Amino acid sequence: MMDQEKYREAVRNMRHSPASLERRGECWSEEDKEKLSEMFDDDVGITEMAVIFQRSETAIMQQIEKQDLYDRTLHPTRQRNNSVPYKCLCEVCVADPALCPLHKTCTNNQEET
């Protein structure tokens, strides 16, 4: 690993000019996906992984979610905000019935009996 000052400079550059990242926009190789998974299991931080992979922190987080490394599909209680997804997913509701004026009449919201 690089010394602390070089690491800070790399993080600063990554956050202030993400266009300068070498791997920005590239597809993830299977090897990189495996390495990310291993690093995640070894409790390596998001920022450190971003510096190593030369990708944004957002790209790292998206890949972690895509690989389901938090095991949200196996452990529904680990869902964001510990909530169950809303039933109504029509184009008007967009998963938030509180914002939908048609929520009470929406056919997607009907309980199956």
Rank of each mutant, 00 (worst) to 15 (best):
M2Y: 06
D3T: 08
D3W: 03
Q4C: 00
E5K: 15
Y7C: 09
E9V: 08
A10I: 06
N13W: 05
H16F: 10
H16W: 11
H16L: 15
P18C: 11
A19G: 11
A19T: 14
A19I: 13
S20A: 13
S20T: 13
E22R: 13
R24L: 13
G25E: 04
G25W: 03
E26N: 07
E26P: 00
C27F: 03
W28E: 09
E31T: 14
D32G: 04
E34K: 15
E34N: 14
E38Q: 12
F40G: 07
D42M: 14
G45V: 08
E48G: 05
A50H: 01
V51A: 04
F53E: 07
Q54P: 03
R55H: 12
A59C: 06
I60C: 09
M61P: 06
M61T: 13
M61H: 15
I64E: 08
E65D: 15
Y70W: 01
D71I: 02
R72W: 00
T73S: 12
L74Q: 14
R78K: 09
R80V: 10
N81L: 11
N81S: 15
N82R: 15
N82M: 12
Y86C: 03
K87S: 03
C88H: 00
C88M: 03
C88E: 02
L89I: 08
V92L: 01
V94H: 05
V94D: 05
D96I: 00
P97Q: 03
P97T: 05
C100D: 02
C100V: 11
L102I: 08
L102R: 04
K104H: 10
K104R: 12
K104G: 06
C106W: 02
T107V: 12
Q110M: 13
E111G: 00
E111C: 07
E112D: 09
E112H: 06
